[in-house]
């Protein structure tokens, strides 16, 4: 099925620019433009969005989001916008190409280490990760597999929604696919929340300042 693969729209040099990359640029421009316009004319709405994200992610992390809010909020807003664009005709959602969720998951993967090292220092972070030394391989496997799981979860949800819409479109093209598109919108927003929530859980687990090793405490659920 050729419609799963993104197609090349135009070329810069010998790099093919696919339709998902183009729609990513369109979405980025829209978000930036909307933010600038809101800041000029309706700053209260912008503050409401930031407050909403702050409360939501603080609930998930179990403590104040604080310095992680810019990163996590950007993730949430971008993924929600990208998934919403799957309902717009003639625009391909960026998240239906597996490269976009993979890039986002890799950003989360590296930012977990970045925030962890910034919070605790390099040596302390590595020591915390390998506290009983035999958990180090498990930790590494877990880090890699959850990155893969983040990618496949986002990609699979979006692509399955689009395939269901396509199948129903071949059966009953008039008005009936709208119901599945609405359901796809709901799934897209939910997946944006889940991606961000899992990223914040990973970051909270990585940056969590654990107690000293000789003073065993029960691991707190964050």
């Amino acid at each position: 099925m050729e419609s799963i693969q993104p197609y090349v729209v135009f070329q810069i040099g010998n790099i093919g620019i696919t339709d998902t990359v183009t729609s990513t640029w369109v979405i980025m421009a829209l978000i930036v433009g909307l933010t600038v316009a809101l800041e000029r004319w309706q700053p209260a709405l912008l503050e409401w969005v930031i407050d909403f994200l702050n409360d939501l992610l603080s609930d998930v992390m179990g403590r104040a989001v604080g310095p992680y809010l810019p990163f996590l909020g950007t993730l949430a807003i971008f993924i929600a916008a990208a998934n919403t664009f799957s309902a717009v005709p003639f625009i391909t959602a960026p998240t239906r190409d597996i490269s976009t969720p993979l890039a986002l998951a890799l950003i989360v993967f590296f930012s977990v280490h970045y925030f962890g090292i910034r919070e605790k220092g390099t040596w302390r972070y590595i020591k915390d990760m390998a506290t009983p030394i035999f958990t180090l391989p498990l930790e590494i496997i877990g880090q890699l597999s959850r990155t893969l799981a983040l990618t496949l979860r986002l990609f699979g949800n979006i692509i399955s929604g689009e395939i269901v819409v396509a199948v129903i479109f071949t059966l009953a093209p008039l008005f009936v696919p709208i119901t599945m598109t609405g359901f796809g919108l709901f799934t897209g927003i939910l997946q944006a929340f889940i991606f961000t929530a899992l990223a914040s859980v990973y970051i909270a687990a990585g940056a969590e300042v654990s107690e000293d090793t000789h003073r065993k405490t029960s691991p707190s659920k964050t």
């Binding site: 496949l152 979860r153 699979g156 949800n157 889940i194 899992l198």
Partner: peptide
């Protein structure tokens, strides 16, 4: 919130099956 995160983790197994079957059917 905990239920939503747990649901997402459980849901991903179904997504894996779906992806494998999509690969089998289309590629």
């Amino acid at each position: 919130t905990t239920l939503l995160i747990a649901m997402a983790l459980l849901e991903s197994t179904a997504i894996y099956v779906l992806l494998v079957i999509l690969i089998l059917l289309f590629a």
